[in-house]
Simulated scan of single mutants.
Amino acid sequence: MTTSCKVSICVPTCNRPELIVECLDSCLAQTHTNIEILIGDDSSDSRTQALIETRYAHDARVRYVKNEPSLGQARNVASLFARASGDKIALIHDDDYFANDGIASLLELWQQHPQLEVAFADQYEVDAQGNVDTSKSAELNADFHRTALAQGLQKQPGRTGLVQMFPNNGWMANADLVKRISYRDDVGMCCDYVFGSELCLAASQVYYLHRYVSYYRKTDVSISHSTRGSTFAASLTAFEFVTALELDASLEPARRLALRRLAPIVVSLYAKNDAPLAALRVAFEHPYAYAYGFDARFYYHLSLIARAFITMKWRGLPPSAPRFP
């Protein structure tokens, strides 16, 4: 089954020709060879296109499309999913890459669990030059609930997405499910998290493999970094998304766990963006996020809120919530 199963590896890219070669070479080096590599290029120039045409034109598995005009992150990824012809779909971003047996390791899980719909595993953390930091890699996975004790079929697939255990790339899932959920263009920079949550909520079986299958490159240059201090931040959209979800009662603890992480970030964002009343509301509606007053962040955030009130009064502005796009 595994050798006959075709896997569509989707690679969205934007202005990273210096990094995408490592990503694509890792895909082509997979021990599971029944693959297609779909590239959606949102770049503002032709450097990536020239590189692909020069380096990979001979390999029919590489299928490149230059988006003109550019589609944006969510629509670019959605277009890749729509183009996929494989039985399974995997996603890897242009600055990240797979271990040589990454696809095979994930695909083998379907041999053990034929009804499986979604699989994911651990990610190495690497710096801009590609150097692996083993201690940070362990911390990264532990921070997102990926530990040895968690390996196996997840008892609550939806929880896996909500608490952000499911990674933003380096995963594999049934193509029909991925195409049905796809990426949403109405949630801004939060599209990765919303997709992962909705995918896991829709899946009947999700498996976490405690093994490194991909490399996550951590750099200072990314879309999320450019918006993280503003009201366009992914964390704020994620907070609104999780809050509004209609969930089965059994998943309410997962919602609470997700909001425990998100609420303090949102309080800080509101306080720093001239919305101290909104910040106060979120802080006092989610006291568990601050250990009911025993978390030092609570008092730091109160000081941010107080400063915002004083600053806005001095500027003659009402302390109302900012408008969102």
Results as ranks from 00 to 15, higher is better:
P276Y: 12
S235T: 13
V132F: 06
P17V: 10
E285S: 13
W314T: 10
N273E: 09
L304M: 14
R261L: 09
K88V: 03
L280R: 12
R260Y: 04
A283E: 13
I305K: 07
V126E: 11
A148W: 04
V163Y: 08
D101C: 01
F284T: 14
P69G: 02
F324Y: 15
E139T: 13
K136A: 15
S222R: 04
V65F: 08
L262P: 07
S226E: 13
A142M: 07
P264G: 07
I39L: 15
I265W: 14
I181L: 05
A296K: 13
D59W: 04
E18W: 12
T134L: 12
M1H: 02
Q164F: 15
P264I: 08
A175W: 00
L24H: 07
S46E: 14
L304G: 07
C14W: 14
T31P: 00
R217H: 09
R211V: 01
L51K: 10
V21N: 12
A175G: 03
T231A: 11
L109D: 00
A283K: 14
N169F: 12
L236G: 03
L28E: 10
L247W: 06
Q30C: 04
A306C: 11
V178Y: 01
E198A: 07
N174R: 14
M165V: 07
W171E: 01
M172K: 00
T160I: 11
M165W: 07
P264F: 09
I92A: 00
E18L: 13
A173W: 00
R261H: 13
T160A: 09
F195E: 05
G40H: 06
A275Y: 08
C14I: 13
N168T: 13
E108M: 05
E53V: 06
L19W: 12
K313I: 06
P276L: 06
A128S: 15
R75I: 02
G158H: 05
L269F: 08
A74K: 03
F284N: 12
N273M: 07
G293D: 05
K179E: 03
L177T: 06
I89E: 00
D133A: 09
L257V: 10
V242M: 10
W171G: 00
G40Y: 04
L247Q: 02
P319S: 05
V11D: 01
D41K: 02
L257A: 15
P276W: 09
R217M: 11
T311H: 12
L140M: 06
N67W: 10
P157C: 04
K272A: 15
L51W: 10
T147W: 10
A29W: 05
V7C: 01
A82Y: 06
S8F: 02
A173G: 07
A82L: 01
L38F: 11
A321C: 11
V178H: 03
T54V: 09
H301E: 15
S320H: 12
A202T: 09
N131Y: 11
G196I: 02
T3E: 12
T243F: 02
N76M: 10
A279M: 09
Q164A: 14
E53R: 15
R184N: 09
T33K: 14
